[in-house]
Write a protein that binds this DNA or RNA. Structure first.
Lengths: 334, 334
DNA sequence: CTGTTAGCGCGTTCAA
DNA sequence: TTGAACGCGCTAACAG
């Protein structure tokens, strides 16, 4: 089969073949009512020519790109990769396509991404920012584009969807405390990240409420975290149990145990945020706080699109969703 | 602060302010040499106006959208989510943005995605197709757009990047056989997927070479797989070891063990494809075939861009990369 | 190297 | 309702 390098069909070609005006074609394609006869002829011409509208031209003309931008720290963990998948599906249902960008917690990259989305005229943005993100920076890039903060609170002037981080951490801590482990330590990497700050706060509240002083085991990255952690658990007075603030931190803990050659019985009771693949598979199975990813995405998308469609109140809204405590065995239950 | 709803600055505004022609602005922005004086004035005007070029207009005029499409079955496993992250980084370095679409192994969705990318005039496409994908279907959507098949061989007329699936499966099987487990079974979901077919073939070759008959434990999905698997390992003459063809299949195996309450000692020796989070964390740690994701992505992107830049030979190229056998303990080593 | 001109494909006027 | 004409913002082609 010889590849006929025909130029792509345009509305004009379709109009000509269907013997109607170009604007009738345009109307038909966008669902604006036209005479049945016209509709039929246009439909046939479209099919015959294999016509597909050009989204660039559409965007240029209409000012809407039918595109939403998604900016995340990374996609290579279960929380974000599931979120991406759900966002994509929902965007598709709403006739949009997703531009995906990751910043790996570098503010500079994130700013560059915002500028890029501006150039692409994204109709809206889902943003999980990093430490240092300001609403001012966002609004410089997007004076008039809807932005929803996802898993990250930036300002009351921005729509946000969040886990009830404090409450979840408090509940998790209380659960551990309830087992009689008085000296619960809190483990996290990148303690400056918003969610981790909040969770730390919730943890501290729960500890203080029982007259216990918080013990934060933190490090700038997860490599280092293992070392700090090792010092802590091999010290004279080690923690009685561990609250881990993310799947990454949990992985550090488990990796350390493995390096140390500890058997399941020698492991500190553990409760972690996120419900990664390995949670149910390790020994003992991990008790976790599971984030309601699907609901978070659903809420974020409906906030976003209500703004894109101009149907939102001016005031920004914040949706806080509770975490689910999934009890397995690592916490000491059973 | 009152939001001044100024229209966005355009090249003409910049040109006017800088007192140069519009095309000089365009040239400067694209890196085409201009007189230093002009460059400086344009740069200042751009800054002053906060000018950002409009990618829609650019795409419309130049025929290049600076966008690449990525179509995958899903992103919620480690292999694909890492691939996505790497693709995005590399696309960014090359000045492109990624449009991400997932089809969850539904051919219809995949076709719709191809059509969508056509409307967006994607400059190139990275595609992990599903069963039933034909080069004809792809070329109907993209007569003249570069497409690279990723982790999926479709036709010799399409650039492809692949794991050496057969060889890896053969080696893995031989490794298990080498431990003296004669009766090695092969476990997979969705056996019709290209990679799994190839791996199955490699497994069968290795078995046959030793005069053993292959035993395929397969199911259409991973829920069902657990049941089939259970029948197999609880039968009178169970397999002596298991070769799992993907992280999902491996997860099914481990989940089943957990459901059955089996201790590490009672688990069949196991070797699995992919190196997911949990591989090093479970007991015993999993021996796996790790796919060289970064290299696969690097190759795919350079194949793609050499075609986008018109610097590729006409003939399609296939890159096959070897898997890495990561020996831990589940296979019976140590 | 520069500026002017034209038109990419579409949606949105307008007058019919 | 329809079709013709215009222009969104930009870059390719040209003449200077």
């Amino acid at each position: 089969m010889i590849k006929t390098r025909n130029k792509r069909a345009t509305v004009r070609d379709v109009a000509q073949l269907a013997r109607v005006g170009a604007s009738s074609v345009s109307r038909f394609l966008r669902g604006v009512p036209v005479r049945p006869k016209v509709a039929e002829r246009v439909a046939r011409a479209v099919k015959e020519l294999g016509y597909e509208p050009d989204e660039s031209a559409r965007a240029l003309r209409s000012g809407r790109s039918r595109t939403i931008g998604v900016i995340l720290p990374k996609v290579s963990n279960l929380f974000f990769s599931q979120a991406v998948q759900l966002i994509e599906e929902e965007a598709r249902q709403r006739g949009c396509t997703m531009l995906l960008l990751t910043h790996e917690d570098r503010l500079g990259e994130q700013l560059a991404h915002l500028a890029k989305l501006r150039r692409y005229r994204a109709d809206g943005v889902i943003l999980t920012g990093t430490h240092g993100t300001t609403v001012r920076g966002i609004r410089t890039a997007f004076p008039d584009v809807p932005v929803v903060a996802f898993d990250h609170y930036i300002s009351s002037s921005l729509d946000s969807v969040l886990l009830c981080n404090r409450e979840a951490a408090r509940r998790a801590t209380e659960h551990l405390l309830g087992h009689g482990y008085a000296n619960v330590a809190c483990v996290t990497g990148k303690p400056e990240i918003y969610s981790f700050e909040e969770r730390t706060a919730g943890y501290s509240e729960a500890m203080s409420a029982q007259g216990r002083s918080p013990w934060l085991i933190a490090a700038a990255n997860y490599e280092q975290l293992r070392f700090v952690l090792r010092d802590a658990i091999e010290s004279e007075n080690p923690p009685a149990a561990l609250l881990s603030l993310s799947d990454f931190a949990t992985r550090s803990v488990l990796t350390l145990y493995r390096e140390l050659g500890r058997k399941a019985a020698d492991c500190l009771p553990l409760l972690g945020f996120d419900d990664p693949d390995f949670a149910a598979l390790v020994d003992p199975p991990l008790t976790v706080i599971r984030q309601p990813i699907a609901e978070m995405v659903r809420n974020a998308m409906s906030l976003l699109f209500s703004r894109i469609d101009g149907a939102a109140p001016k005031k920004a809204r914040t949706v806080s969703l509770p975490g689910e405590l999934v009890i397995r065995r690592s916490c000491g239950c059973c």
